[in-house]
Simulated scan of single mutants.
Amino acid sequence: MKLHEVRKQISTPLGAPAFPVGPYYFHNREYLNILYRTDMEALRRVVPEPLEIDEPLVKFEIMNMGDVTGLGTYIEAGQLIPVSFNGEKGEYQHAMYLNSHPAIAAGRELSAYPKKLGSPQLYIDSDTLVGTLDYGSLRVAVATMGYKHQALDPEQARQEICQPTFMLKIVPKYDGTQKVCRLVRTQIKNVTIHGAWTAPARLQLFAHALAPLSDLPVLEVVSASHIVTDLELSMPDVVYDYLAEH
């Protein structure tokens, strides 16, 4: 392979890259979102400055990606924390667990999504929408919500999906020190809402050393939503460089 050909590659191995070039379009992406109240001190231990915490809230989400160009089908779960940065309200992407290596590699290498391997599920059990997350052979989360009890305003659903998202991009040098350490911002803008609902919901989190979702304990469920969309992901912008002099 010639030098100019190597320079065009975006991932290894060269003969069969871990993921294809985007953009990535999501068709009928299905969300189960549960917003809950947690312990403020627990949040302060995991949210990096200069992000600011306004309220002790966390959003647990499970997303069923049934049709993604270039990536196929997979399911993802994680936690987002409502924050603000320079007066702009958004969400800090704290942790993500999913069952697709191409999606993990693309999310970590092309962007800054904090993705790890896990086994989420999203399905209907009688009259209940159920989301679960296993890490290895152990269950670490169970979310339940009434199935399509009340319609949710599509504009409210759009605002929920399209909030600015902040993430940490960390790339180490070969000696283990940081080569890149940046706070980045992304925002979904191109969204079509196919349906949105709300209903009573509950969430259980179970302790695990390597999937510590329960470190942000559930004190009270505030709201829940079930949303089906088409959308396209946007590339992130750097908003803060931790290695630069400030």
Results as ranks from 00 to 15, higher is better:
residue 2 K to I: 01
residue 4 H to P: 00
residue 4 H to T: 13
residue 4 H to Y: 15
residue 5 E to I: 13
residue 7 R to E: 13
residue 8 K to P: 00
residue 12 T to D: 13
residue 21 V to H: 11
residue 21 V to R: 14
residue 25 Y to C: 05
residue 33 N to F: 08
residue 33 N to Y: 10
residue 34 I to N: 02
residue 39 D to Q: 02
residue 42 A to L: 07
residue 47 V to D: 00
residue 48 P to E: 01
residue 51 L to N: 04
residue 53 I to D: 01
residue 66 G to F: 04
residue 71 L to G: 01
residue 75 I to G: 00
residue 76 E to F: 02
residue 78 G to M: 08
residue 80 L to A: 11
residue 80 L to F: 07
residue 84 S to A: 15
residue 84 S to F: 03
residue 86 N to H: 14
residue 89 K to G: 14
residue 89 K to W: 06
residue 90 G to F: 09
residue 92 Y to G: 11
residue 94 H to S: 15
residue 95 A to I: 06
residue 98 L to S: 00
residue 99 N to A: 12
residue 101 H to F: 13
residue 105 A to Q: 01
residue 105 A to D: 07
residue 115 K to V: 03
residue 122 L to N: 07
residue 125 D to S: 06
residue 128 T to I: 06
residue 140 V to K: 08
residue 146 G to F: 03
residue 148 K to V: 00
residue 149 H to M: 05
residue 150 Q to P: 04
residue 153 D to G: 12
residue 154 P to A: 07
residue 157 A to Y: 01
residue 160 E to V: 09
residue 162 C to L: 09
residue 164 P to D: 03
residue 166 F to L: 00
residue 169 K to R: 15
residue 169 K to A: 04
residue 175 D to Q: 04
residue 180 V to E: 00
residue 185 R to H: 03
residue 187 Q to G: 03
residue 192 T to R: 14
residue 195 G to M: 07
residue 196 A to F: 03
residue 198 T to F: 08
residue 199 A to R: 13
residue 206 F to S: 08
residue 210 L to E: 12
residue 211 A to N: 02
residue 213 L to S: 04
residue 216 L to G: 01
residue 216 L to R: 03
residue 222 V to H: 01
residue 234 S to V: 08
residue 234 S to M: 13
residue 237 D to C: 06
residue 240 Y to G: 10
residue 244 A to E: 13
